[in-house]
Simulated scan of single mutants.
Amino acid sequence: MDIESILKEFNVLRNRAMRSVQMVRGAKALESARKKYLGEDGMLAELDRKIAGLAEEARPLASQTAASVKEAIAQACARKLEQFALSERQNRLAEEKIDISLCGAEWRAGRRHPLIALSDDALEFFQSLGFSIILGPDIETEFYNFEALNMPPHHVARDSHPAFAVGADALLRTHLAPACVRFMLERQPPLAAICPGRVHLRQPGLDASTEIHRIEGVMAGDTIRLSDLKGVVDLFSRHLLGEEAGFRMRPVYCQFAEPCCEIDLTAPDPESDSDDPRVWENALLGGMIRPEVFENVGYDPLAVNGFWFRMDVHRLAEIRHGAAIAGALRENDVRLLRQF
């Protein structure tokens, strides 16, 4: 084969490949055309092998022509692929076009959960009385959770605090009094502190919650009496339920407070038809701190008196909003939360 014939074949192959590339209608068809002409077993490779049969002085020109044809076909394939990509992008943008004349999505402002708002309201009230807000760790030791509060090992009082053990001497706190103990170990009386947080109790039943949100407080000094606790409860009940609110105290046993009382709150029910339109709801537990606790924190029990109290935030919500609503608040139904 002479040089003129092979150059003519290269020219025919280039023209045919250009027409084929221009006529394809998709990326897959384009890839098939590229392999047909530029693949290892393609038409250009087959024509390249004929160069070896040319005279030695004609081979450089044939090789240059082959490289030129290969580059032209490759560039044509690349341009066609860019056209397909651009067309696909334009089609996708047309399908995803946003009609700016439509009303936008409504965004509702976030707000505090009603239980959190109630807890914050109570903390602000106690701050106004001079209480300091303190925090404590969720994981406590046996000493802070039990022994410092007059509950030595194997004491029956620990049965009322079923705890989750997380180590040899570590457990999830069952009340917030340990935080009050830590505060008293760091401070000398007079003092007043309020502690919000979670406590963890092992509860029977699948529906029982093991996590309870509480608020506990302590006040200590040389002249603190049970009447001071009654005064604090009276002010808090009026703040929570209004000026017509009342309270009553019923004696109950507590290992680290004596005397200790369950405290019921009430407010007049305008919808009640009875002669006494009051419904009493248990809300707090509190009493005078025992001398053993003061000894454990380094106070002189003959010179220092004090009281302790606690309340469940969910119980306060039941009293303020009703049991049905307070129970539903735990489910975090947005339709209900938007009403607060």
Rank of each mutant, 00 (worst) to 15 (best):
G327S: 11
R335D: 12
T65A: 14
D312A: 14
L240E: 13
D228M: 07
F247D: 03
M23T: 13
Y299P: 02
F256V: 10
S87Y: 01
L149G: 04
R248D: 10
E211W: 06
F143E: 09
C180L: 09
A328L: 09
R79Y: 11
H113L: 01
S132L: 13
A55V: 11
A303I: 07
I98R: 10
Q255C: 11
I3Y: 09
S160C: 07
D159C: 01
Q127E: 15
L265E: 03
R14Q: 15
D222Y: 01
W280C: 00
L81Y: 08
A220L: 02
F146Y: 10
I133E: 15
S63A: 11
A29E: 15
A165E: 14
E88F: 01
A177E: 00
S63T: 13
R59S: 03
K70V: 00
N15L: 14
A324C: 04
D2F: 05
A220N: 02
R338L: 04
R338I: 07
H200M: 12
A52T: 06
S5V: 13
V21F: 00
D222S: 13
R225F: 05
K28G: 02
A85P: 00
H321W: 14
W107N: 04
E88C: 05
A109C: 05
G221D: 13
C180G: 03
R225Q: 13
A27I: 00
R214L: 12
V21I: 14
A78I: 13
C260F: 14
K230F: 07
D264F: 05
S87N: 05
G167F: 12
A148I: 01
D41V: 08
F10L: 03
N282A: 10
C195I: 04
F131Y: 15
P196L: 08
A55C: 06
A283V: 14
N305K: 12
M249R: 08
L7E: 06
P189D: 10
R111E: 14
S5H: 12
A220E: 00
P152Y: 02
N332Q: 11
A76S: 15
D276E: 09
A45C: 04
I73Y: 00
E57N: 11
L265Q: 02
T223K: 14
L329R: 10
C261P: 02
M1E: 11
I6V: 02
G130H: 05
L329V: 05
A168V: 07
Q64R: 13
V12G: 05
L7Y: 01
A283H: 10
A117M: 02
I6S: 01
C254E: 15
V24N: 06
R238P: 00
F126A: 09
R182D: 01
K80S: 02
E95T: 06
S119W: 06
G42Q: 13
V218M: 11
A117L: 05
N150G: 11
A317Q: 06
G205F: 08
D48P: 02
K8T: 12
N150S: 14
F294A: 05
C261I: 07
R290A: 09
V166L: 09
E106C: 03
I194T: 06
D99Q: 06
E9T: 13
R34T: 09
A208E: 04
F84H: 04
F183R: 06
P178V: 12
A193H: 05
P196H: 12
E82W: 00
S274C: 08
A17P: 00
T266R: 08
D264L: 11
R238Q: 04
